[in-house]
Design a protein around this nucleic acid. Structure first.
Length: 354
DNA sequence: AAGACACCCAACCGCGGAACG
DNA sequence: TCGTTCCGCGGTTGGGTGTCT
């Protein structure tokens, strides 16, 4: 049986509210309250509106002490921190910001904060890509293009990695950090590379094999920036899969709950890097990332429910893409509506600036 | 000047779950 | 326990406005 409509759709007005409607609704609620029944309210006051519409109008616009626009830096930080820790629970996030509505915050996130962070990430990607292009050209020019295969017939070349992973269109996924070739130039910015180590881990989930044994890498100087990218018998289909997956990662980064455990096990180390992270918020939720199922299928391998130390890092790692762990500086307790969150971590605003 | 495009945000829609009989 | 009603939430849409070409 289908759900009964909340109101007579044919007989309700839709679209923007007029000042008269606003006045009617506001006056009534201020005088009598909602009466605990939004559905009946519009009829009581002679509004040809759906009850839900009245509720929304009141909560998002007419309610006293509502703030519109002009989000402060502190508010941005709170939004971002909470988004990372609890995902798109806008009502909960709004509860931390007096005068802000969930709708407002949602809009602000979707239209500004998300782009702000993505823009920052893209800049870094472009800088890295430019760097690797230069190196590529140098290598080609000097005829030193290396394609090394080891005894397991694994292709181990960062050039090959780029061949597989770097997209050719305008839609740039995050470039896996560990995939950067060994810095041939002393002035290469290693911090950028290290900041994006999490993406490499995601790639491991995707089935790529990366060997991080830095000590075995020549020309590495002991840093962890060198990496072997090894793909076992990659087929064109897999290649396409990797590429699609990378696009997926990039598109999902800002859209989904980053922190939820994949497998529901208590992997405390999942939280490494996020000081004062709301542990309960993570463990009490086994929600998966919609649209990223491929990570479970591929990354978890054979439907295994166990998590290796590598596999268990992903959500925090993805969060750290948005906020490198080192910028977590500020902590306050937050009393959370419904007891869902008891505390939350706030991040330094520096990453948002600019 | 005007059309195309991008951005912003108020409002709508549909779903899940709580409350209630 | 089950069906119904309503609330609240998050995702999406669409219109207004600003910017670019």
């Amino acid at each position: 049986m289908g759900r009964a409509p909340c109101c007579d759709k044919a007989n309700v007005k839709k679209g923007p509210w007029s000042p008269e409607e606003d006045t009617k609704l506001k006056n009534y609620i201020e005088q009598y309250g909602t009466g605990g029944n939004w559905i009946a309210l519009p009829q009581k006051i002679g509004l040809k509106r759906c009850g839900k519409s009245c509720r929304l109008r009141w909560l998002n616009y007419l309610r006293p002490n509502i703030k519109h626009g002009g989000f402060s830096e502190e508010e941005e930080n709170i939004i971002c921190s909470l988004y990372i820790s609890i995902g798109s629970r806008w009502s909960i996030i709004a509860a931390q910001l007096p005068g802000r509505t969930d709708n407002d915050i949602k809009n602000y996130w979707n239209t500004r904060l998300k782009k702000k962070l993505l823009g920052k990430q893209r800049k870094e990607q472009q800088a890295r890509k430019l760097g690797s292009l230069k190196q590529e050209m140098k290598r080609v020019m000097s005829g030193s293009f290396n394609m090394v295969t080891d005894h397991q017939n694994r292709i181990t070349s960062t050039d090959h990695y780029n061949q597989f992973y770097l997209p050719t269109d305008h839609c740039q996924p995050p470039m896996p950090p560990g995939s950067m070739p060994p810095p041939p130039y002393p002035n290469q910015d290693l911090s950028l590379i290290n900041d994006h180590d999490p993406i490499r881990k995601l790639l491991i989930k995707l089935g790529g094999r990366f060997c991080e044994d830095d000590n075995q890498q020549p020309n590495d100087g002991g840093s962890n920036t060198n990496l072997q990218c090894s793909l076992n018998n990659i087929s064109p289909t897999q290649e396409q899969f990797y590429e699609n997956s990378m696009n997926l990662v990039s598109s999902q980064l800002m859209n989904d709950d980053h922190q939820y455990g994949i497998d529901g096990t208590n992997n405390m180390h999942m939280l490494q890097g996020l000081n004062n992270f709301p542990v309960e918020a993570v463990y009490n939720n086994s929600q998966r990332l919609e649209g990223m199922e491929c990570f479970y299928e591929v990354g978890m391998g054979n439907g295994s429910t166990g998590a290796s130390s590598i596999e268990s890092n992903s959500w925090v790692d993805m969060a750290s893409l948005v906020y490198p762990p080192t910028v977590t500086t500020n902590y306050e307790g937050c009393h959370q509506q419904g007891g869902m969150l008891q505390e939350c971590a706030f991040v330094d605003s520096s990453y948002l600036r600019g």
